[in-house]
Write a protein that binds this DNA or RNA. Structure first.
Length: 469
DNA sequence: AAAAAAC
């Protein structure tokens, strides 16, 4: 079996890998690193969670260890679709370049130009950026891309979804055509194919199957929910969410709760907090400092519930998420796969629970068609209790009327605090689980269900094609 | 119909 020490990485990089506790490369690393070290272009087709980031950072650090950056002329460039992903890549560089003298700058929006400018002025070896901010710097004349020897495009399919492809093409054209290009995408939509044909030259194509498919390490559940009255739907849905969380008990160490809309992310976070849950929101309308703070807290374990928009659905690597709650059925079926993929990572078990209202059933159908499975239905936890004597209608509105004093005994427990006892065990579709070690060693030639070997048609289509059918 | 990314 190949070890990192068998790859021709610099000894200083190997030392850092060893200190980080890694010995054996993942399939994408084993496939891509030798080609990248030879200076070849690489086309990596891999999902996140496959060790993709290190498959380009490690050879880059090795290649950049010689030589020095000149002012305003970065020697390498990594492009990422979201700010959080860019920050994550930057951290990866810090981990593996700790014994190498490399300078780097993170160019993302939402933070001041000044610091970024100063770093560029001094000269950086590695520039990690989101496209918008990078072009902004370029247009201010602060940045020359003619010295870029290595360029990385990460999560290209997501760049496509987000409309970044024109920017990417522009950035490509600003770098010398002699550069080495490392290009990563989870899928090969025609548009992505076109870009790679245009900007990569004779790339080594490395393709790895999804490390663990949704159906293997993630237990999925679906809770159907119909509001008792239309104007109570929002409040009742939040109540269901709490009940579903409570039903998981201690098994739910932390969780990401996905909502479709930014306003619902805020409301849900506020509501949970109000009910004593340790929750905070993250979405694109929040200040970057807040986004960073919240995500750091969740990673560190000081925050238990992360309420998120799809900004957090893809790519973010948080190893220990026990649960994903889909407060809404995602409007794009493929987002379901990305969202629940935040749990059950690195061979751990994970649980994904989704709430579905009648009006979301169309979207649910699309999800179930995509994953080629019916998600096991579980009881609505609120139906399991005897009809409440009194409706506790509080929600997240700041203007919520003050609570009336409770009737009855002063020490009577509010019904919300009563432990919710499931009358029926959630239906667990017990699939024959492969042994953990076997799963970890899963190679690309293994048969896997879901999105592994088999690629649903739609994934290979551009958004326009999907719309037009 | 919404999310992300630039000021």
């Amino acid at each position: 079996m190949t070890k990192f020490s068998d790859l021709k990485l610099s000894p200083k990089v190997l030392k850092a890998i060893d200190e980080a506790g890694y010995e054996t490369p993942t399939p994408i690393q084993e496939g891509a690193i030798p080609h990248a070290l030879e200076g070849r272009d690489v086309l990596g087709i891999a999902q996140t969670g496959t060790g993709k980031t290190a498959s380009f950072t490690l050879p880059m650090i090795t290649a950049l260890a010689r030589g020095r950056a000149r002012a305003r002329m970065p020697r390498s460039l990594v492009l990422c679709p979201t700010r959080e992903l860019a920050a994550q890549v930057a951290e990866n560089f810090d981990t593996y370049a700790k014994h190498v003298k490399l300078t780097k700058a993170l160019l993302i929006g939402g933070v001041s130009f000044k610091e970024q400018d100063q770093l560029i002025d001094r000269g950086v070896d590695v520039l990690i950026a989101t496209p918008g901010r990078l072009l902004d710097h370029f247009e201010r004349g602060k940045l020359l891309l003619t010295g870029v020897q290595i360029m990385v495009v990460d999560e290209a399919d997501r760049m496509l979804d987000m409309g970044f492809i024109p920017d990417i093409e522009r950035i490509f054209s600003l770098t010398p055509f002699t550069r080495q290009t490392l290009f990563f995408s989870a899928t090969m939509a025609p548009e992505i194919e076109r870009i790679t044909n245009t900007f990569l030259s004779n790339p080594a194509r490395i393709e790895v199957a999804r490390q663990a498919t949704a159906s293997e390490t993630i237990t999925q559940e679906l809770c159907m929910f119909k509001a008792s009255r239309r104007d109570r739907a929002a409040t009742e849905k939040r109540k269901i969410l709490r009940a579903l969380i409570d039903r998981e008990g201690d098994a739910c160490t932390n969780a990401i709760i996905f909502c479709n809309r930014k306003t619902d992310v805020d409301t849900t976070a506020k509501s949970l907090k109000k009910h004593g849950y340790d929750a905070a929101p993250i979405h694109g309308d929040l200040e970057q400092s807040k986004r960073t703070e919240v995500l750091d807290g969740f990673r560190a374990g000081t925050l238990r519930f992360l309420c998120a928009s799809d900004v957090a659905a893809r790519g973010l690597d948080i190893p220990n998420v026990s649960h994903v709650f889909n407060f809404d059925v995602p409007g794009h079926a493929e987002d379901y796969v990305h969202r629940i993929g935040r749990t059950g990572r690195a061979g751990r078990d994970g649980k994904a629970i989704m709430i579905c209202e009648p009006r979301d059933e169309k979207n649910l159908d699309a999800v179930e068609r995509l994953i080629e499975n019916k998600i096991p239905r579980v009881d609505n936890p609120l139906d399991e209790k005897p009809a409440p004597a009194r409706k506790d209608d509080d929600d997240a509105k700041e203007s919520a009327p003050p609570k009336r004093p409770r009737r009855g005994k002063p020490d009577a427990k509010p019904e919300d605090a009563a432990p919710i006892k499931p009358t029926a065990q959630p239906v667990k579709e017990k699939k024959p689980q492969r042994a953990r070690s076997e799963r970890r060693n899963q190679k690309s030639d293994n048969k896997s269900v879901g999105m592994g070997d088999h690629l649903p048609d739609f994934i290979a289509k551009s958004f326009d094609e999907r719309r037009t059918g």
